[in-house]
């Protein structure tokens, strides 16, 4: 089980694309690996929280840097 960090750049994308792109990336990852997502959609803060709660993936962090949001999700 490696922790290779994968990244999805969902900046400038609107709902539901950040979630859909993240889901697609997670599908191609191994259990325990961490996905980093960059987004600019303010709605994605709540959406990723809900996404992780529903899918069982672990939301490691959710941060805001200026107008950008960074999420880290560990695949279940």
């Amino acid at each position: 089980m490696s922790n290779t960090l994968q990244e999805v750049d969902a900046r400038k994308l609107s709902c539901p694309l950040p979630i859909l792109r993240a889901k697609k990336a997670l599908d191609g990852m191994d259990q325990g690996q961490v996905l980093r997502i960059l987004a600019t959609d303010p709605g994605s803060v709540m959406d990723f929280e809900s996404f992780c709660k529903q899918t069982g993936n672990e939301l490691l962090s959710s941060e805001q840097n200026g107008g950008e949001y960074v999420f880290q999700i560990r695949k279940k």
Binding site: C15, L20, F51, Q54, T55
Partner: peptide, 11 residues
């Protein structure tokens, strides 16, 4: 399509 694709992403 937004609701269907998002629901599918949620499993």
């Amino acid at each position: 399509f937004i609701l269907a694709s998002t629901a599918a992403a949620l499993g």
